[in-house]
Design a protein around this nucleic acid. Sequence first.
DNA 1: CTAGCCTA
DNA 2: TAGGCTAGG
Length: 326
Amino acid sequence: MGNADLRDLAAIDEVPFDDLSGSVVAVDAHNWLYRYLTTTVRWTNDSIYTTADGEEVANLVGVVQGLPKFFEHDITPVFVFDGSVVDLKDDEVAQRREDREKREERLEEAREAGDELAVARLDSQTQRLTDTILSTTREALELLDVPVIEAPAEGEAQATHMAREGAVDYVGTEDYDALLLGAPLTLRQLTSKGDPELMDFEATLDEHDITWEQLVDAAILMGTDFNEGISGYGPKTAVKAVREHGDIWTVFEAEDVYVDNADRIRDLFLEPAVTDDYEFDREIEPDLEAARAFVCEEWEVAESEVERGFERIEQSVVQTGLDRWT
DNA sequence: CTAGCCTA
DNA sequence: TAGGCTAGG
C-alpha cells in the first residue's frame, strides 16, 4: 500500500525555485538522506564511498552535493532527525523486513553469478541508515553550520510542528504523510533537477470540502504506513464515505468495514510526539576547511567526488552573504 | 473506481 | 516511484 492514493487527493503545484528565496525549510533528514543514498549509490561503484574499514559513507557525498541546491537559491535548510521509532508499525516493519531479506537473498545470488550490475542495483536497495551514516551526517552538517534538530519521535512530525508554529516556512520531504500530519506547505523534489512541487494543506481540505480529521480518516480507509487499508477504498470512495458519514467510526458502522487500532493511528497523525524545545540560527557560516578535512581525510571520501560541491557551497554562501549588504 | 501489472 | 493500461466490479 503506497501513498500514491494520497497524491491524488493532494493539492500540488510546481513552484519556481526563485519563489522560495529567503525562506526556511525544515527538512525531514532521514527521508532526504535515504533519497540521496539510493540515487547516489545506484549504478556507481561503491568503493568510492567506502573507507578502508568497510564503512559506507555515501551520505557525506550526498550532504556535500545536496546542500548547494539550498544555498544557491538562498534557502535555509534545517535538518530534523528522527528520534525513537514510533510504535504500531508492526505490519509495515514486518513487510519491510521480508522485502529486505528477499533482496539480500537475491544479492547473494547475483554476487555468486558475478552479475555486477545487479549487485550494484540491489546493493543500493539494501542500504539503510546506519549509525555511522546518521552520526557522520550530523557532524558534517554541524561543521557546515547547517541547523540540526532532534525530534522526539518522527522527524517529519517535528518538522511539521515547526511549520505549523511558523518557525519555518516549509516542510521538505517526499513523503505525502506530511499532509496527514497537517504540514501547511510541503516541498517535494528538492533533490531532483527541476523546480520543486508544493503541496498545500488548506487547499487540499478546501478542494474536497473535508476537515483535517476527515482527511486522516479517508487515508486510514485507503491505507497508511500503519495499516493495510480496506480493499475497494481508493481516494474517491474513501473521501465520499467520510464526507457522507462524518468520521471513520460512522463509516465502519454504515459500511460494515473495520480497521484495527484506528483511534491510535489517527492520533499518530493528529497528535504526534513533538517538542517546542528547539532553536536554530538562520545565518550559515560554514567551516569549509574543517568540513573538507572531515569528509576527505577522516572519512576517506575521494576528493574528486566532493570538490565541486564544496566549491558551490563556498560560492553560494559568500554570494548570499554579499547580498545581505547590498 | 479500484487493483494489479508493466514499463520508463 | 510514477504513470499508463486493463480487467473487473
